[in-house]
Amino acid sequence: MYHLFFRLAFRRMDAEKAHYLAFRWIRAAARVPALRTLLSAALAPRHKSLRTLAFGREMSGPFGLAAGFDKNAVAIDGMAMLGFDHVEIGTVTAQGQPGNPVPRLFRLVGDRALINRMGFNNDGSAAVAARLAARRTVFPTTVGVNIGKTKAVPEGEAVQDYVTSAERLAAHADYLVVNVSSPNTPGLRDLQAAAALRPLLAAVREAADRAVTDRRVPLLVKIAPDLADEDVDAVADLAVELGLDGIIATNTTIAREGLGLTAEPALTGQAGGLSGAPLKDRSLDVLRRLYARVGDRITLVGVGGVENAEDAWQRILAGATLVQGYSAFIYQGPFWMRAVHKGLAARLAASPYATLADAVGADTRKVSS
């Protein structure tokens, strides 16, 4: 039914307007107790076999919502109602900002992909922190907070900009993510170089520890798929050196060549980050490389081109403890998470592994041995 609705309605609408319309519906449904209970039962049945331990937290499963959908922490319970096992909000910047001019979100329907150049449009870390502090939890779920650089802040002041957001948001985060890999903020990806990344991550770690003294807030970094292999290795080594808790692989790509895109050049030529199915292979390659480098010392989160249970299962076998999606949700709708969970449970049951934890990295270990 959703696919018919998408073809007849959403596909004809401006992509950003359709996003906000769906967003409003989800939020509205989550406010009605009887409706949210009904929808949660229908869309988010739990499979005991999928229970996952990550960052010291037990989650109902490994599958979460990637950052970018709920930038301002206004629909956490709505997304949990739909079946996401964790929800990563943001990207949040120290200062509120409107983002880039519209249009800035484009659907490549035939490629099952999106291009966005949103530009970290959000309310700012002070407003988001206040919203998280005032939140009344309806569905217990793990909440990640993804932070980035304010566009107007010079690159030389980037560290303090991240620190400001970390100080405000760490207390409300089950884990904190440093985003240095969006292509839509000028100069941001330059921070992925180890020389720039080391002081940034160290400063954010110190800020989180100052802000939250009764627990250690897990800290992750999110990297781009466009990094050269040697740069992926450098980030992996740095993460181990600094004692990071995780790496998210990967963000969107600026690449267009070699991805087999079928959409018209007017779409594929739009500036911005490409997400969805065309990103699948490269994201998986980066994930395998990271796991081969860090093993079980760091928690890896696989994202990029995850469309179905098989994709999620391949991410786990490659080394991901957690898996995230976003673009496929736009195309497949509210029953997507249910299908992914059901398919994952079936694959685990048919595998030689007793638990998902046993399956993490199994294929990469075979290749490496």
Rank of each mutant, 00 (worst) to 15 (best):
T52Q: 02
T52C: 04
L53K: 08
L53C: 01
L53M: 06
A54W: 02
A54D: 06
F55G: 05
F55R: 04
F55W: 15
F55C: 07
F55T: 08
F55Y: 15
G56N: 13
G56R: 13
R57Q: 11
R57D: 01
R57F: 05
E58H: 11
E58V: 10
E58I: 08
E58Q: 15
M59W: 03
M59D: 04
M59Q: 10
M59A: 11
S60K: 10
S60W: 04
S60R: 13
G61V: 10
G61K: 04
G61P: 12
P62S: 08
P62G: 04
P62I: 01
P62Q: 04
P62V: 02
P62F: 02
P62K: 00
F63M: 13
F63L: 15
F63N: 02
G64V: 04
G64P: 01
G64C: 00
G64L: 00
G64N: 00
L65M: 10
L65Y: 05
L65E: 08
A66V: 05
A66R: 07
A66I: 09
A66K: 07
A66W: 04
A67F: 03
A67C: 08
G68S: 07
G68W: 09
G68H: 07
G68L: 08
G68A: 06
F69S: 03
F69V: 12
F69N: 05
F69E: 02
F69G: 01
F69Q: 11
D70K: 09
D70N: 08
D70F: 03
D70S: 05
K71L: 12
K71P: 09
K71E: 06
K71R: 15
K71M: 12
N72R: 13
N72L: 10
N72P: 12
N72Q: 11
N72A: 06
N72V: 09
N72S: 09
A73L: 14
A73N: 14
A73G: 15
A73C: 14
A73S: 14
V74P: 05
V74M: 13
V74K: 12
V74G: 12
A75L: 10
A75S: 15
A75T: 11
A75H: 09
A75K: 10
A75Q: 09
A75F: 06
I76G: 01
I76P: 03
D77I: 00
D77F: 00
D77V: 00
G78F: 01
G78I: 02
G78M: 02
G78A: 06
G78D: 01
G78N: 03
G78C: 06
G78R: 03
M79T: 09
M79S: 10
M79H: 14
A80C: 06
A80L: 03
A80H: 07
A80N: 08
A80R: 08
M81H: 13
M81V: 14
M81Q: 13
M81E: 12
M81F: 13
L82E: 12
L82I: 14
L82N: 08
G83K: 10
G83H: 13
G83F: 14
G83W: 15
